[in-house]
């Protein structure tokens, strides 16, 4: 089974990127074999609607769940409609996160964790 983790780098020792829409990389990984693909996020510099764009990108990757720090309302709606589990509040390295996920310690959320525009640099 494949899942997607937002990442600041392109390997399994990288830290989780706390943003969803504007994360550096999407790591799409097989939870059993740990075979993975690191997708550089093409949407980082988009003006708006990034949650929708990134959500759609991941929805097309046939993953079961998305693990990230935070997710905004538009991304959440897109991912939920695509019937993906959304797990927020995740941090640490990609490796640690996979282990936690496999042990069943991470539970899906039922709502977005932040407001629109959260991931835009310079806004808090």
């Amino acid at each position: 089974m494949k899942i997607c983790i937002t990442s600041q780098g392109e390997n399994l020792d990288s830290q989780v990127d706390p943003r969803f829409g504007r994360c550096q990389y999407f790591i799409v990984i097989d939870t059993e074999t740990l075979g993975f693909e690191a997708i550089q996020n093409p949407n980082i510099d988009s003006m708006g609607g990034v949650g929708v764009q990134s959500g759609q990108l991941i929805a097309n990757k046939s993953v079961k769940a998305v693990l990230t720090g935070n997710v905004g309302p538009n991304a959440f709606q897109t991912l939920q409609t695509a019937r993906l589990d959304v797990i927020t509040g995740v941090s640490g390295t990609i490796k640690e996160v996979i282990e936690k996920y496999n042990r069943g310690e991470l539970k899906p959320t039922q709502c977005p964790s932040v407001n629109s525009k959260f991931g835009i640099p310079g806004t808090k």
Partner: peptide
């Protein structure tokens, strides 16, 4: 980016 086309659903924002 006001439209997301998923497998069997289209979302409009």
């Amino acid at each position: 980016n006001a439209i997301a086309v998923l497998k069997d659903k289209v979302l409009v924002f």
